[in-house]
Simulated scan of single mutants.
Amino acid sequence: MVDTSDEWIVQRTGIHARHIAAEGELTSDLATAAATAALKDAGLTIGDIDLILVATATPDDTFPSTAVTVQKKLGMEHGAAFDLHAVCSGFVFALSTADAYIRASQAKRILVIGAETFSRILDWTDRTTCVLFGDGAGAVILGAAVESGTREDRGILTTHLRSDGRHREKLYVDGGPSSTGTVGHLRMEGREVFKYAVGMITDVIEDAFRATGYGAEDLDWFVPHQANIRIIDGSARKLGIASEKVVRTVADHGNTSAASIPLALSVANEDGRLKRGDLVMLEAMGGGFTWGSALLRW
């Protein structure tokens, strides 16, 4: 449909494959599957969950939230559920929100899901965007625990979030209920996004290091948003993070927006790389611009 090739795509993005939701398959379906897998992995049931957060920029409907649809599909009749919208940074924003709820004793266990069907908002005649994005979902469960209050605590140690609406036109969707009454298509100024990405990403990661006293050399794993291999590797080099500590899944998934970090965590967990006590840095940048980091101990 567009003038491109596998070689061109791989060379510029590192993407070899993507997954596309089936006809009739919704963001909530992907989210529910990821949530079910996370509950099984944690040895929990939906009855153990107090709150469901779904980070998505591609909800099933304008309303209700995708989270309440997931709540229904999981058979949860208690607690609360809502969506967060920060595009590719959504999962990090949702983790930060969940962390705040737990620290405030508003919830004991929270199911955090990143889920997207970006294939539904792509212009398949625009080769600058249609080769980049895919569909997927990933989920984690956060739980309250009594720790010693040191840097060695497990769980989320610190999060740092940013946004700057002045950059809206560089990465946006040209439609919506209030503006056009349509879904619209994703539009991106790729070179501009790339230009800002590495600097913004390193900014919030350095904030996390300052807040905790850790440095790049202390990390066991760096799990960035899987947008483009050049941005991933450029960020790691600028921060002094060793290449072998970077979790890369962009080749197999493409850019799945809010789903990319939990998908990468899932892969690293399943293949045995992630071990109890590992220090892990998460980071993402998305439309808005939004960007953020989360430093956690697995």
Score class of each variant (00 low, 15 high):
V2L: 12
D3S: 13
D6F: 12
T13R: 03
T13E: 05
H16P: 00
H16N: 11
A17F: 13
I20K: 13
A21L: 05
L26I: 03
A31D: 06
A38H: 04
L39R: 08
L39T: 10
A42N: 12
G43D: 14
T45P: 09
L51V: 13
L53H: 03
L53R: 00
A55E: 00
A55C: 07
T56I: 03
D61P: 06
F63Q: 14
Q71G: 01
H78W: 02
A80R: 10
F82V: 08
H85Y: 00
F91S: 00
V92S: 05
V92K: 05
A98G: 10
A98Y: 01
D99R: 08
I102N: 02
R103D: 10
Q106N: 12
G114P: 01
G114F: 06
A115L: 07
T117Y: 02
S119M: 13
L122P: 09
W124D: 14
D126K: 10
F133Y: 10
D135F: 05
G136I: 02
G138R: 00
V140L: 04
V146K: 14
E147Q: 15
T150R: 03
R154I: 14
G155F: 01
L157F: 14
T158L: 08
T159H: 02
V173E: 06
G175M: 12
S179L: 15
T182Y: 06
H185R: 14
V193Y: 01
G199N: 13
M200F: 03
T202G: 11
D218F: 09
W221F: 10
F222H: 00
N228Y: 08
R230L: 06
I231L: 11
S235K: 01
K238M: 13
G240M: 10
S243C: 09
K245E: 08
V247I: 09
T256M: 04
S266V: 10
D271S: 14
G272F: 13
D278Q: 06
G286Y: 01
F289G: 07
G292A: 07
A294D: 10
R297P: 05
R297A: 10
